[in-house]
Design a protein around this nucleic acid. Structure first.
Lengths: 337, 337
DNA sequence: TTCCCCCGTCGAAGCGCTTCGACATGGCCC
DNA sequence: GGGCCATGTCGAAGCGCTTCGACGGGGGAA
């Protein structure tokens, strides 16, 4: 059959425990022995049996990642995050098990209690998420992507969406704009109380109020048709509008299109800032001033937090990645007069 | 600590092996005993330890799924497929481990040889895929999404992309069109020899030849700018063009936009058929005549094939899902004269 | 009635690894 | 020079489950 640790031990002329220690480094092993063991491993093509390891050590070296598949979330962002989680986990010698949101709390319970995974990463957290109480009772560490309303005792990380909303408005205010609109996520995202959407909204509104600006908010379905409609309505209802913040990756191009059709030049007549991945912002007809959604960094940091928790180290309860605005060609000073 | 099988056995007044058999059904257990065991399990909240199970049975009940993260693949399709794989796997009491393409052959070898997974699903297969020889040597079953050039001994499944290309052209031919164009995937996809792109192209060309049509082919980057440029060039170089097949989900809306700008009405002046997910086809300004990319069905069938292989049952080497064209508003008879 | 076989259950032997205590060796300190 | 500690290695005991062989009892066939 396949080669096991006793085969390696025999081949290297040491005991199985020595091989194990040489592999894990949990006890000092002489350089010489270590080299001999390494050679035997290579020669025999030895690969520790994951199940045996998990059983003996009560560590599976597997992380669970719960991915959302619901309406209104931007798929590439999720995918980017997922890939970054897997890559980071691998850097820590861990693998990643994919769990769908659909499986709900039972899915989390299953993979955690069967010791299939050592820890969990949960995305798309809602303000009042039903999985929270469960996660508290599981004795496995977890990290949430997003902030629920009662996050005490949980470890949460996310882009600082509130700041993102503010920074966009600040930027527009600095350019002299006085009437601004927020084109947001699809309505169901707000209804669901997914926290990131709410927080952008709060930041947007707060900053607009602070600057004494006139502001308006429009959720928008993730279809080109909806985008055109929202653009039209926005301008009809607010003819003085000169600045727009878009928090909806899926409709950026259709929106630019629609504004163009409506006779507006960007940025001459209308300034636009967006919350979206950088590669999207730079691939449109007008390079957009934007705040990047750092899914890669988010995934990496989430994994780092989890590893620290697995090591028993203390971690901050809340981690907010700073909202960094990159000025591009879609924003300009308001034409006065 | 956590409750284990001996606890359940004691509580139910049976031996551990009886509990195991009651759970697995591998030996007959009286209905009465089974009920008693079930009650004890529920009462104690017992959950078998995955590692122990894997060690004892040499089955982990985990599938590996290799997802591509490369340029030119349409992310929502991959995501839909992934979700469907996880869901189907769960229906067969299996979990799914996410492996990135980036890890390459070593990743496959690792999860397979460490017995972390029982079987593998590999997406984005190239014509001459370096992972093939490896997969042949691994003693774990696998299913490929896509067809390599030498697929003997492998189990492959995919949409019948060649037929898809043909069906689109047949449809246009039936409507009287004589000059047709294919707007394809980004150039790197062809360079990489990803098989699906090639096969669409073959089908397209073969059908056009068969119908005696004039045809032209243009790869297209997945950006709105590229879409506009391709649309322009297409019409400039082939003024008589009246039918277009688009195999590039990312640029559908920009293309419609570009054709409109160029003064073409769809379908009056130009008929368009697409290969894309149904929800995309129906959410654009003009509902597109399209061939759906059935990622959900693909995922489900891939898992079914894998399960059959794990059971030692024979499976077909090649499975082609039929290309079904749904006529919508983007195609019409060519205006003659 | 006797033999056999099948049904339902048990006990014990692993699966391949980690980890703990023990032990041998060789400085180093006093 | 004897005691100690640090270093390097070994042996054995599990980790929690599955599975194989065995066994008792009851029913059908002869």
């Amino acid at each position: 059959m396949t080669v096991k640790i006793t085969d390696v031990a025999r081949h290297a002329g040491v005991s199985p425990s020595t091989v194990s220690y040489a592999l894990s480094g949990k006890r000092p092993i002489s350089a010489e022995t270590r080299a001999r063991v390494a050679a035997s491993i290579r020669e025999l093509g030895y690969r520790p049996h994951a199940g045996a390891r998990a059983l003996a050590s009560s560590k599976s070296n597997v992380l669970a990642m719960v991915v959302p598949l619901r309406a209104g979330i931007h798929v590439p962002v999720v995918m980017g995050f997922a890939v970054s989680v897997v890559t980071s986990a691998r850097a820590h010698d861990h693998d990643v098990l994919l769990v769908t949101q659909e499986e709900g709390e039972e899915g989390l319970r299953r993979v955690a209690e069967s010791a299939l995974v050592d820890a969990l990463i949960v995305m798309d957290v809602q303000l009042d998420d039903p999985r929270l109480p469960l996660l508290r009772t599981l004795d496995r560490p977890s990290v949430l992507i997003g902030f629920p309303s009662a996050a005490d005792g949980m470890t949460c990380i996310d882009l600082d969406f509130r700041a993102a909303g503010e920074v966009c408005v600040d930027h527009l205010a600095g350019l002299g704009h006085r009437v601004v609109g927020l084109i947001g996520s699809p309505p169901e995202v707000y209804v669901r109380q997914t926290s990131f959407a709410q927080r952008v909204l709060q930041g947007f509104t707060a900053a607009a109020t602070r600057h004494g600006m006139t502001s308006t908010v429009h959720p928008c379905e993730a279809t080109p048709a909806a985008a055109r409609e929202v653009a039209e309505r926005l301008l009809r209802e607010h003819p003085a509008l000169t600045g727009v913040v878009v928090h909806n990756e899926a409709v950026l191009d259709p929106l630019l299109d629609a504004f163009e059709h409506l006779g507006l030049r960007i940025p001459a007549d209308l300034s636009i800032t967006a919350l979206c991945p950088d590669d999207l912002a730079t691939s449109l007809r007008v390079p957009l001033t934007s705040i990047a959604i750092p899914s890669a960094e988010l995934g990496e940091q989430a994994v780092n937090l989890l590893m620290r928790k697995l090591d028993g180290a203390p971690v901050p309860e809340a981690t907010l990645l700073p909202a960094r605005l990159t000025p591009r060609a879609s924003t300009a000073h308001r034409l006065t007069g």
